[in-house]
């Protein structure tokens, strides 16, 4: 195994982690501020991808497609918050899970109704397609580099928003004590809608970015949703920093596990068996990571008691 391959796989893990962060950030923000478990977060990711594919098909512009994805997911998020989610804050988590699961089914079948059952086409824009040569002779797809950069910019922006702006102060205050900031005159209902729309927009952005290199189809959000939950459990529920660290850990563990475990087993057993055992273990790697984190840090890496 060469060093170049190893570094390329690290980049792949980083890119996967950054994408997971976009999903997990919204999920953890919504849980942290409102105490709500939102299973429909994956549907917002799907809405972003479909909006992007639709607008890209009409206009041919990837930038417009990204804007459409952000707008559509944020609008869907705000609408869902006002119509459905608002009634669930006072209820227990089981009711929330039930209602947001119903939302998944409605969004999936609604999307199928509008766009049909066959996957949509969304293409990498020409100026971002193809591989580039990195120092050291690594060939790496430019688009994946762009995802890494875009994700890190969004992460930095999110930290700045939370730490330095008025709305960030309100969000942090909302996490600490909901009733108190309401008593201090902050419009809680509006704040919740804004936070929900923000989380939704991040999911939509992730969907649009990933849609260009994957398949834009109904149900694409659910596998990512499960990983995003793993990320926020590892990072500590409610913590943006935890979401970032958790996402990078999960991204790297999953990618490197898929790459290294079969190689490692091949040292001690026949190639076919090593492939089978290594692949099986690789698909468990992130859950083993989650279990280990929970044993030593039951509230996650950055969770508060």
């Amino acid at each position: 195994m060469s060093l170049i391959l190893f570094i390329e796989q690290m980049l792949n893990g980083l890119q996967f982690g950054v994408m997971l962060f976009l999903m997990a950030a919204g999920l953890t923000l919504i849980f942290g501020v409102m105490g709500l478990i939102n299973l429909a977060h994956g549907s917002l990711y799907m809405i972003g991808a479909f909006a992007a594919a639709w607008v890209a098909g009409l206009t041919g512009s990837f930038v417009l497609a990204l804007i459409a994805a952000l707008a559509a997911a944020a609008a869907a998020g705000a609408l869902v918050e006002v119509v459905v989610i608002r009634r669930l804050y006072a209820r227990d988590h089981l009711d929330q899970v039930l209602a947001t699961f119903a939302l998944i089914l409605m969004f999936s079948e609604g999307t199928r109704w509008v766009f049909g059952s066959f996957p949509l086409f969304l293409e990498i824009p020409p100026y971002l397609s193809g591989p580039v040569r990195l120092p050291g002779g690594i060939q790496y797809p430019l688009y994946r580099l762009a995802i890494i950069v875009a994700g890190l910019i969004v992460a930095a922006g999110l930290f700045a928003l939370i730490a330095r702006t008025r709305i960030g102060i309100q969000i942090r205050a909302g996490e600490a004590d909901r009733e108190m900031i309401g008593a201090l005159g902050v419009n809680i209902a509006a704040l919740y809608t804004v936070v929900f729309a923000l989380g939704a927009a991040l999911a939509g952005l992730a969907g649009a970015l990933i849609g260009a290199i994957q398949s834009v189809q109904v149900g694409m959000g659910e596998p990512v949703l499960i990983l995003a939950f793993v990320v926020i459990v590892i990072g500590g529920i409610g913590s943006i920093k935890g979401a970032l660290v958790g996402a990078l850990l999960v991204g790297l563990t999953d990618t490197m596990g898929r790459f290294l475990l079969p190689v490692a087993f091949a040292q001690v057993m026949a190639p076919a068996a090593a492939t089978a055992v290594g692949s099986a273990l690789a698909s468990m790697a992130i859950y083993i990571l989650m279990a280990l984190v929970l044993i030593f840090r039951p509230r996650g890496l950055y969770g508060v008691a």
Binding site: M1, S2, I4, L5, E8, Q9, N12, Q15, F16, Q139, P141, R144, I210, I213, Q214, S215, M220, P223, T255, R258, F259, P262, P271, A272, T275, A276, S279, S283
Partner: peptide, 21 residues
């Protein structure tokens, strides 16, 4: 090389890197 991927997997960056190498 011979690889089994996960059913439903959507990202193949790790596999493509191995194909390249």
């Amino acid at each position: 090389g011979e690889i089994y991927t996960q059913l439903g997997q959507t990202d193949y960056a790790a596999e493509i890197a191995q194909i390249r190498a």
